[in-house]
Structures are given as structure tokens and as C-alpha cells.
Computed example of a mutant assay.
Amino acid sequence: MPVDEKLLRRLVETPSVPGREEKQREIAREVLAPLSDRVKTDALGSVIATKKGRDGAPKVMVAAHMDEIGFIVKYIDEKGFLRLQTLGGHDPANMVSQRVIVTTSKGESLRGALQPARKPPHVAGDEANKMPKAQEFFVDLGLSADEVKDRVRVGDYVTMDRTLEKVGENYIGKAMDDRIGLFVMYEALKAMESNEANIYAVATSQEEVGLRGAVASGSSIKPDIVVALDITLALDVPGGGGQDEISKLGGGAAIKIMDGSLICHPKLVEHFRSIAEREEIPHQMEILPRGGTDAGGVQRQNGGAPSITLSIPCRYVHSVNEMVNAEDVQACITLLAKYLEEAHTGDYAL
């Protein structure tokens, strides 16, 4: 099945940082409304779509986060340059010489250059070989100081300026983490033929700063089963591989065993694995030593719930060149849809 590139492009290119997910909320409400019986937004900004199943059947929470790593404006200097506060985990090596979009309180999108406060190599000497720190970066909007201060306020947010592109059999762009998870959730709901379980599809807020939206939504929903959708590291590149590979592009859906935030429920892992084997869905098993997903936050709510993460392998995470494989994405969609069709049959008692 070909990927819906129009929807994927819209998801990837629409800016949304932790706490400022309003543009992604608009998409979530639009996509989820015809796929569910009810759509609401909670106090932390997560969008919750309910698809009713059989009375008394388990409640399955499917979570994918809307936010991407980014920045907020913390200071505007006398020349009109913007200084930034990071939101989420940034590697300064991936920030050098990028272009950004500043989304203003008036809804404007202003393009600018993201640069470290340092001299060019022609005059820098030894300084040119030193890696800048995240707090040294500023944004140049190419405008006068008066115009910047008229159009930009402290608290406006900033995201990388990159488009979605097809590269071979892969897609590349910023914010695959976790717009590709949202895409899998939306497409799986479309592909699902039936459901007896009561499904709560949640486009969560503020994941990149501590799984906050998912924890709040999980506390409200009180799910019996939790399935998070997120990217995982594909280290099938120079410098990776072997026991440190985690996952690889083209290897299929990654069924998580554990990460830094949770140990996935072993019976739930086995259920996903058995479906993948039965349906001949390409898959791989994932152990991620660090990092976490929404499942790790919800797992410990309300006395605990069997939880798992279904991951999309991704190269170059937290950069503007995050890369996913089209076949892996489809494998995740198919596996999630098949699981939701039979989630009510799972026995996860320990």
C-alpha cells in the first residue's frame, strides 16, 4: 500500500513544540473525527479520540506525540537577534547553519538563520574547531530591531525549517519523531476492519519534555492496555551496527522489549510478535538502552497497565534529516491494525 504522502508531508512540516501543539491539534481533530465516535481535547492539550467497542471489553490507549524538539524565544537583543531556550534534547552539532521558522503569537511564520555566536573560520583561529553549545545560538530574521520587536514576543516558538523528501525507498525530514507515529496511528485506524476493544487514540502533548501529556491522558482514561507509537534508533550506519544496531531500516516494525522508561509487558510483546509471525509482517525486536516513550509514563498510572511500544526505525534522530523506510512504516500500520482487531482476546495476567 503506498504511503499517503500528502498527509505525511502535512504532519512533518506543520510546526509544533512542547506546550504549543495547536497546529497539530487541528490536524488531529480533523483526521480523527471521521474515524471515531468522539473527539475531545484535555487540559494539557492532548487530543483523545474514542472508538467504541463492546460493552465491558478492555480499554486500549494508543498514544503518539504531537510535539517536536524546538525552542522558544527567551530574549530579543538591541539588534533584533533572538536568543533561545531549548525544548527537548538538542545536539549542537545538528544545529549549526540551519534555517528555522519562528511562529509568532499573531500566527505569522518568519524564516530565519540559526547560527552560533562565533566568528567565521577566516578569523576564528583555534575557536573554529570547538563545538558550540546550545545556549550560544541565536536567530537572525534579517529584519531591523524595531520590526523584530514589533512582530516577535518572548515565548514565541521556533522550529527547524525543512520539508519532507523521498530519498530512494525512504522518507527524510525533520520531526519524524513523532509525526511518523501519529501517521501510523491515523492510518491503522483507517485500516482496521473491526474492533471489540474500546480504543482511545491519543495524540499526546509535551512528550519531549517528560511524557507529560500521556501521563495526564492515561490518568483520565484509565486504560487496561497501553500501546505507544514512536521512533527508535536505527544505527545501521557507519559507527553503528552489531550489538549496538538497535534496529535497521528495511527490517520491519520494531517491537520493543524495553527502553529507558519501561520494560514492556512480556505477554503483550509475545502477542504482537505472534501476530507479526502469523500475518508475515516484517518485524524486528528492539532493546533501547536509553530514552523513553509515552508508554513509560502511562504504564505506572492507576495501579499499572500492560504496556508496549511499537517503534518505527529511524536514522539520524533529533536532526533535520530523520529518515524512515516506507516498508517499515507500512509494517507498523498493518501490525497495529491487526492487533487492535484482536486486542480484546489478550490475556496479560501475571
Rank of each mutant, 00 (worst) to 15 (best):
R99I: 08
K106V: 13
G107T: 14
E108Y: 15
E108F: 09
L110H: 12
L110A: 15
R111A: 14
R111L: 14
Q115S: 14
A117I: 11
A117F: 06
R118Q: 10
P121L: 12
H122E: 13
A124P: 05
G125C: 07
D126L: 13
A128H: 04
Q135A: 12
F137M: 10
F137V: 04
F138E: 14
V139S: 07
L143V: 06
L143E: 05
S144L: 02
A145W: 04
E147Q: 11
V148F: 10
V148N: 09
K149D: 10
R151K: 13
G155Q: 12
G155R: 10
D156A: 15
D156N: 07
Y157E: 13
Y157L: 12
M160E: 13
M160A: 11
D161A: 15
T163Q: 15
K166I: 13
G168D: 14
E169M: 08
N170I: 12
Y171W: 13
I172C: 13
I172W: 10
I172F: 06
G173D: 11
D177L: 00
D178V: 11
R179Q: 06
L182K: 03
V184M: 02
M185C: 05
M185F: 01
S194E: 03
S194M: 03
Y200L: 03
A201Q: 03
V202M: 02
A203F: 05
E207G: 06
E208M: 01
V209D: 09
R212T: 02
R212A: 08
A214Q: 02
A214G: 05
V215P: 00
V215M: 01
G218W: 00
S220P: 01
P223Q: 01
D224C: 04
D224G: 01
V226A: 01
A228D: 01
D230C: 01
T232V: 00
L235R: 07
D236F: 03
